[in-house]
Design a protein around this nucleic acid. Structure first.
Lengths: 218, 218
DNA sequence: ACCTGAACACCGTTCAAGT
DNA sequence: ACCTGAACACCGTTCAAGT
């Protein structure tokens, strides 16, 4: 980046990189160029460094992705658990969860499939959510499956945000899909994003449904 | 594959490849080696052919992925719409949808993010689902968002199936996550897959919730 | 038309060599 | 310790040359 200073081989007097700088630049890059063009080489270039320098801070590309996921997860809001009523705390968590990934749309597919083993801060997030469910009276054996069900919906919704807004546009095949055309037009006349509307509908249903089946009357 | 016959350059007397053979082998390969090692070169090798030969049948790797998605989508069951009651038809569709991707776990993240433009058979699937919702009395402007909400949950659940079963295992961080440890143990004592249980719970909630908010009493 | 062979601009990763 | 340079085994894709 800084072309005024050309580095020759050898240890620089002061470190050029640090882990946080790398993770931040990686998310920014992934977001701007997309997963296809997201490479170690491109990231190095963005940081004004040669590719091998990155391997001093991350073991490999997969470890980089795990670190990126952790940064994204840090902005998930778990402050409601133990303070607000369960349904409000969960709503806050779910919306901020989706927003966190929505801020890095291209990261979703890449990051959602990485295991969380060894990611301490991400584990801490789950611990807080679990405690929130237990405190609200959940039977322990239902906690994980209910969280996973909710999370599946959240991540699927985040995945849906990556899709182009005209994803369902039949184009030349419109004559064969009159129902789809009608539904799309009716939806469009409502205004607002299809993805946002769908998320709102689904989240309300999930929260109400989970509350009911776990003895929390509406 | 067939090492007894070594091909020299030039058009073979009979075509070695066809589109269907390529798509089938591609799904099989993606499933067996994972997305990381899934390459045009590996696919060509599996088909006993050199990489450039593939480009006679698919424009590029992205087009290959779209074709693969279409094959997967073909096994989604839409036969219930117009025959069974709405909630049963949707349940059949949703379960077969998840199963279709579950049969190709490594394909989910790759295929779920591809747009469906130009994929006629996939569009036909959506048309059938839309018609099912309209016939059940849905207001047109609610059809797409409700389908998308449901689909987000289904795809998120499919994505969850890719995660290792011990994804939440805190490992060395167990002392810091007592609630998580308890919930995992309680869940484990129930037997059955966490992913399957979560999907069942969430699907029932989604179907009931959608039915209620659209005037279909339970 | 349908394949191979050669070539291109890339990857991720390792490692010795510099400071 | 922290960077570069060179090298390795790969990518996806194009295109001429063969039959």
């Amino acid at each position: 980046m800084d072309l005024s200073e050309i580095r020759r081989a050898g240890r620089p007097r002061k470190s050029v990189l640090d882990r946080e700088k790398i993770l931040g630049a990686a998310l920014e890059l992934l977001n701007s160029v997309g997963p296809e063009k997201f490479s170690m080489a491109a990231l190095a270039g963005e940081l004004g460094v040669k590719p091998p320098a990155l391997y001093h801070y991350v073991k490999n590309k997969q470890a980089l992705l795990v670190g990126m996921r952790e940064v994204v997860s840090d902005s998930i809001d778990i402050s409601g658990f133990g303070v607000l009523p369960w349904s409000e705390a969960v709503g806050l968590w779910a919306r901020s969860y989706r927003d966190a990934f929505a801020a890095h749309p291209n990261a979703i597919a890449l990051l959602a499939t990485e295991p969380i083993a060894g990611a301490a801060r991400t584990l801490a997030m789950y611990e807080c959510v679990v405690q929130g469910f237990l405190a609200a009276g959940w039977e322990p054996n239902r906690v994980m499956s209910d969280i996973v069900a909710l999370e599946s919906f959240i991540l699927g919704s985040a995945l849906d945000m990556v899709a182009p807004d005209d994803m369902f546009d039949p184009g030349a095949d419109a004559p064969q899909t009159p129902g789809l055309v009608e539904a799309l037009a009716a939806q469009a006349s409502l205004g607002g994003s299809r993805a946002d509307t769908a998320f709102g509908v689904g989240l309300d249903i999930m929260i109400d449904g989970l509350a009911l089946t776990n003895g929390l009357g509406a």
